[in-house]
């Protein structure tokens, strides 16, 4: 399975991180009733943008299994759930909930 992590601005869709274009190490895991994402060694420019708009982020995982339609997982982030540890160069995002959807089969409209 190929997985891509995207962090975008929820207002207008500017992309702050796309691991397809800018590979970085990350991991995500269940944390209580939510999920925790940790991203390592982001560039200073990435971090500045993410922290500037930390309360308005769209966080996605795109998962592509060969021969199957792409699955998108979108995470809902409450206020104050984006943290950066400068010493460790680690960005941590705590997500409260998530919605999975498959764009190819989502809509009966088109």
């Amino acid at each position: 399975m190929k997985e891509t992590l995207l962090i975008k601005h929820a207002v207008g869709g500017r992309t702050f991180l796309d691991t397809d274009k800018q590979p970085v190490a990350y991991q995500w895991e269940q944390s209580g009733t939510g999920w925790r994402l940790i991203v390592h060694k982001l560039s200073k420019a990435n971090i500045e943008q993410i922290l500037t708009w930390k309360d308005e982020l769209n966080l996605f995982l795109f998962q592509q299994v060969p021969g199957e339609p792409m699955k998108k997982i979108w995470f809902y982030i409450k206020e104050g759930q984006v943290m950066y540890d400068e010493a460790k160069e680690e960005l941590t995002i705590e997500a409260d909930s998530r919605i999975e959807y498959i764009p190819d089969t989502f809509s009966s409209l088109h």
Binding site: A10, V11, E56, N58, K72, W74, Y76, I99, Y101, P103, F106, S107, L109, H110
Partner: peptide, 13 residues
Amino acid sequence: GGKGFGPHPHSDM
């Protein structure tokens, strides 16, 4: 005609 925006999320707006 026939065009539009595919599925995408919104929150707190």
